[in-house]
Write a protein that binds this DNA or RNA. Structure first.
Lengths: 212, 212
DNA sequence: TAGATTGTTAATCGATTAACAATC
DNA sequence: TAGATTGTTAATCGATTAACAATC
């Protein structure tokens, strides 16, 4: 963990963790990089480098890494154990969907409230979370030491919402809008642009169909 | 469009399109790369290169690109106009959320049915889409010429589902499970790994908090 | 010891950014 | 013409992959 870990390597952690836990349940105690690489269809050197960067202890030549230790180390890096509190802004179609999704807790994300500017839905409860007015964001964040803001508003409103979040003391933004957000240094914007994924899928399909 | 367009450039298309359409609505007819770059906070050369690669006609020095043409070209590449039919496998928490989400149509994705192995929910209708049994996937796909499969099952089941989809004639897989899928050549796997995004967010937060 | 696995340095690759000539 | 913008070639950067020595 002393070495710098690349962004791409961190993104692979959930995949590693899932497999390593599976192996642990099967009774394994030790695991080697080439073994994992073969199982996950990844390059051997990549896995070796990732493990070397993520593990607090060195691997043992000829045997590998201690499974429990590796899992612990990765969970710390990926924040699976410490719950991060988040708010969600924009309780439209996508926002509602994410509020109802029960899977984020497993990865250490806890959505504590949602906000929307539509008075008709303010006061409602979706997925057990209350919808509050946009005007209450700053007060809520400061009182509840919220660090993460999830943006699920339309693209044209995304930057304004982002600015409010930053003013409210948010340190990381998870942006689901197809918009390029500008933030001060020190604030992270993580884009989850499903439209971008669809664009790639679509381009691939068009090329595949053209080939025939 | 003659030039090869990089994956990253294609991912930027939704962001470009949103902004270009906004400009069109404001009455603009012509747009230059440096102008867009400034507005979206992107590198000028990057935008210039993207536009050059995506536009069927060349830009005019000193003026720029014809807005309508640029929008059309990008929509074709990103497949906004031709509806791609998709099925979703795994109607659990995340699957239900995506089925209820009304936003994909805008980007040319049409989820026509969902599949699950839980007999208790087979036959239900979520978001207007019927839930069918897993055993019917192949028949359904072949009869309805479905090209895209969306995987929202738990990670340990993802590869099996993927294999079924490939056998059913699917050409592109949108994978929401934190699993590394293996597919034959010619099939695209697009990972939408939200756990990966959360890992990055979490790492950033830990570093920010440590700094103080 | 022999051989598998680790760790590290070098080469490669894709994408971004810089520099600059061509054009309207 | 002068100047802004395009298109293209070269330099840089981050990440992946290859090569190889060190170690148990």
């Amino acid at each position: 963990m002393s070495v710098d870990i690349s962004k791409q390597a961190i993104k692979r952690i959930p995949v590693y963790l899932h497999y390593l836990k599976e192996q642990k349940n099967s009774g394994a105690k030790i695991i080697s990089a080439p073994f994992v690489a073969a199982a996950l269809n990844l390059n051997e050197v990549q896995v070796r480098k990732d493990f070397a960067a993520m593990s607090t202890t060195r691997g043992k030549p000829k045997t590998g890494f201690i499974l429990d230790e590796l899992i612990d180390n990765m969970e710390v890096i990926a924040g699976y154990n410490n719950a991060n509190e988040a708010i969600l802004v924009g309780a439209g179609s996508l926002g509602k969907a994410l509020l109802s999704y029960r899977g984020f807790e497993e990865y250490g994300l806890d959505i504590v409230a949602a906000f929307d500017n539509d008075e008709k839905i303010v006061g409602n409860i979706i997925g057990g979370k209350q919808i509050l007015a946009l005007s209450e964001i700053e007060k809520f964040c400061k009182e509840n030491k919220v660090n993460i803001g999830i943006i699920t508003v339309p693209a044209q409103a995304a930057q304004d919402v982002c600015d409010v979040l930053v003013d409210s003391g948010i340190r990381a933004v998870w942006n689901f809008a197809p918009a390029n957000l500008t933030v001060p240094p020190g604030i992270l914007v993580q884009n989850e642009n499903m439209a971008a994924s669809l664009a790639l899928l679509s381009k691939h399909l068009r090329e595949q169909i053209k080939k025939q």
